[in-house]
């Protein structure tokens, strides 16, 4: 069957919804799915943030000290570390006044990927190219 492309569309803020955080961890899980699939099969998620979903992914989060839990920023870095494509809607960042340089990166961890701030048309394209779309 080969690769199956998935589009994860995160549209709720991570601090308002557990499921939008779970979107990130479910995307990262693609790294180990091969153990359950036949040789040559894989799933390829693209993680997309739109609407209020862009509100909780900025760098500088301090949840480990304040709440004793891993921050969404840490999860975002892990997505880059496992080579996921992460798209953030430019129009929605602009709408909420969030600058592009507020997006975290995982350079210090050796990640090759970076978060891509893109127009919604690029996210639409990712959805059209995916076999399944999962809204969180």
């Amino acid at each position: 069957m080969g690769d199956v492309k998935l589009a994860y569309i995160v549209q709720k803020a991570q601090y308002k919804s557990e499921s939008s955080r779970l979107a990130i961890t479910h995307a990262i899980a693609y790294q180990t799915v091969e153990v359950l699939l036949d040789d040559g099969d894989n799933v390829i998620p693209t993680l997309c943030f739109v609407g209020e979903g862009v509100l909780g992914i900025q760098k500088g989060q301090n949840t480990m000290d304040v709440y004793g839990v891993t921050s969404t920023e840490t999860h975002m870095k892990n997505t880059l570390l496992v080579d996921l494509d992460v798209l953030v809607c430019k129009e929605d960042l602009d709408k909420y006044g969030i600058p592009e340089d507020a997006m975290p990166n995982a350079d210090e961890m050796g990640a090759d990927k970076t978060i891509q701030v893109v127009p919604f048309s690029e996210i639409q394209k990712a959805m059209e190219e995916s076999k399944h779309i999962l809204f969180f």
Binding site: L6, H26, T32, V33, L36, L37, V43, P45, H132
Partner: peptide, 12 residues
């Protein structure tokens, strides 16, 4: 773990 879900998605 979550990869169970992804594996089922693959064949759906």
């Amino acid at each position: 773990a979550m990869h169970w879900y992804l594996a089922k998605i693959h064949g759906s």
